[in-house]
Design a protein around this nucleic acid. Structure first.
Lengths: 191, 191
DNA sequence: ATATGAAGTTGAACTTGTTCAACTATTTTG
DNA sequence: CAAAATAGTTGAACAAGTTCAACTTCATAT
């Protein structure tokens, strides 16, 4: 029953009747993305929003110097979105790639907007989700400014052990904003 | 007419009847905050959300080493919030200080939540505002990772000239995540 | 099972940014 | 207006993080 996790996730944010919850979830469909496959590549429009059921995704951009910059990782119980592309129908700056064979529940743009119309509580849900995410991004930026790379690394593996265990050091480095060589050196230092 | 700017700001995000717009704006009241005064200090709960009409605010935290870290500046037409404190009634990590004599429209928590109940469109409004802010924070983090301090400095003064002109270099430095001494050196280098 | 490629390690030289201290310029306050 | 506080500048020594290159280890595909 792949919808169970999605339902729980929604209920963490809002109070909602079982009926409405079912109606909402019916708009999502299961998609399997195999390891290394892309759900989205930079330059195209992402007309979906996703909720990860299983596996792991990396959301990253490639800048003009060809450097990869990881925004975040999404494992079970995380959402996958490109708000800018979805909202404004603009070509995405992001790549979303599966790091393992993964399962994701996707909702397309048309259905999402009809949910907003039919169920005002969906506005509340995404209002709350976005505000929580915003707080997390603000905190991450502060950590980037106030902590050294070493501190950020240990913060990451301590707070996201289930993510850290799935991904390579190279990818952790690109999330932390440092080179993988330097991460390698950090790990050798006395803690 | 201090509500004019707020109304325009709201209308940039949603379509709304003049009636509803008036009803919503009536929940805000004008407050004057003089230069150097705090609208919020770290440790207390911020039971308001604000919209700046005039002047300039700095939103910052002080970390355990005593270093100031500026999240952002808010001038005319910007919002002032501490989502975490407001949502969860938790002591704030943030300070909000006026850098000039300023005017701000404030809505208190009770009124805000009754607006959410009475006018579902307010959920939409803040959903959209939060999502736009989220995109901006993601982009800022990417810039922090992919650009040097010098590039970030010139990005800032180019993209926020109206803010840059109001604030000291010390404060710009704390926004960029560098020391003010280094900013001073950056400005001397050939562009 | 082996070859290929990607991920991880290490070192040396380098660049970016910090720290501290001394000084100058600008604001603020009485 | 004068005094005091705050903001900005500069230099020298230092620390944090990068680059490049060579090497090792691990994973993947055939």
């Amino acid at each position: 029953m792949p919808y169970q996790l999605l339902k729980q996730n929604i209920q963490k944010n809002i109070q909602i009747s079982t009926n409405e919850l079912d109606e909402i979830c019916n708009n999502f469909e299961l998609k399997i993305i195999n390891k290394k496959e892309f759900l989205l590549t930079q330059g195209s429009i992402f007309n979906y929003e996703g909720f990860v059921i299983e596996g792991c995704f990396r959301i990253f951009t490639i800048d003009k110097n060809g450097n990869e910059n990881t925004l975040y990782f999404a494992v079970k119980d995380w959402w996958l979105m490109d708000i800018d592309s979805f909202m404004n129908q603009s070509p995405s700056d992001l790549n979303i790639q599966a790091l393992e064979n993964s399962k994701v529940l996707l909702i397309n743009r048309t259905n999402k907007y009809s949910l907003y119309k039919l169920y005002p509580i969906v506005e509340k849900l995404f209002r709350i989700m976005s505000q929580k995410a915003l707080v997390a991004w603000q905190r991450r930026l502060i950590r980037n400014h106030s902590q050294t790379a070493k501190e950020r690394y240990f913060y990451f593996i301590k707070n996201y052990p289930n993510i850290a265990s799935k991904i390579s050091n190279k990818q952790i480095a690109s999330y932390l904003g440092i080179t993988h060589e330097f991460l390698s050196k950090i790990k050798k230092l006395p803690k």
